[in-house]
Write a protein that binds this DNA or RNA. Structure first.
Lengths: 179, 179
DNA sequence: TATTGTTATACTCTATAACTATA
DNA sequence: TATAGTTATAGAGTATAACAATA
């Protein structure tokens, strides 16, 4: 028995595939989640492509920008502002420190917190990335439509807020029922 | 030397973190890529939560829907329509076949292509998922704004199209320069 | 030569849980 | 007890590249 047959029971019938150009997407055309995934992917790839030689990965731009604009920001704050868990911040921050983009201090008021500050090299890198981010955003804005950027971003934010609230409420209910 | 100091040169100075509520996001507020990532995440989580007991993962909904609405669709066609590589389709399809949701035939016209058809069980599952997807989409639409759904989706699609074209053109140029 | 699907492998991004040190 | 950050680990989702069968 050929290995392939282990998982597939192929019938050899005179059948043909539907026409690729007229596939019926049904509900998928309105299924925002799919479009969000693909949009995120192409946006990520475009920014990564524009960064080119610049060493940082796209995801690190967010973190470095937060540090440059908010000296002595803590890692918990970075996580909150970038919607990532603190454990996801640690690796990025270590890489930035190892490569001389960031220095970490320790708060005198609470010796648990590590406060990040950008070095001159870090500030220069952030400026370089921000210039490429601006070009990237310009292309996105053109695609979204002239003057439509603000509303589009507002819609994305409202989407995020609403779903987070719905989740929080669902959790609260689940807890209440356990009691 | 404490292990921690291998990577961090902490200075013990009297410094404090900035105020969490007034962090300066700078360009990040307009950085659509970040919002797209988070929006995708919360949308994915919301749909996964709504699916609950239903066995399929959110990503499989797209594939199963394509098969139900386009009987005898090929795996390459599924990949194209869902913006995924054919190798990513294989695993999903094997799982669906192993669990009796899908049957695969082979085209008589081109014996390389495997054509997928949903079983009754598969159709029932797709209907169940689609009902939950509808509720999910309703919440998203409310957040986006009444009557704004179509434009929002159109913007996402245009964004995807534009960036893909830009990438294609860049590749073409790169090839031309190699000659 | 090109294409369909399979396989093995690996990568990115991210989270969870257990831990240390501080509070 | 609770919080900040670290670490080890794992998971989801996806792609790349080499391959066999077929065109």
């Amino acid at each position: 028995m050929p290995k392939q047959e282990e998982h597939t029971a192929l019938a050899y019938e005179p059948v043909t595939a539907p026409d690729t150009d007229t596939l019926d997407l049904g509900i998928l055309d309105d299924f925002i989640g799919m479009h969000l995934r693909v949009a995120y992917e192409v946006a990520y790839d475009d920014f990564a492509w524009r960064l080119g030689d610049v060493a940082l990965r796209p995801g690190y731009f967010t973190i470095l920008t937060l540090i440059v604009r908010n000296p002595r920001i803590s890692q918990t704050q970075i996580g909150l502002a970038s919607s990532r868990d603190k454990s996801s911040i640690t690796n990025a921050l270590r890489w930035m420190e190892d490569n001389g983009y960031v220095t970490r201090l320790r708060s005198a008021h609470d010796r648990r917190t590590h406060l990040s500050v950008a070095t001159d090299k870090g500030k220069a890198l952030q400026a370089e990335m921000e210039a490429k981010a601006t070009a990237h955003i310009d292309v996105l804005n053109a695609a979204i439509g002239p003057g439509k950027r603000d509303e589009f971003v507002a819609q994305l934010k409202r989407l995020i807020e609403t779903l987070r609230q719905a989740q929080t409420e669902a959790n609260t209910e689940a807890c209440a029922q356990t009691r």
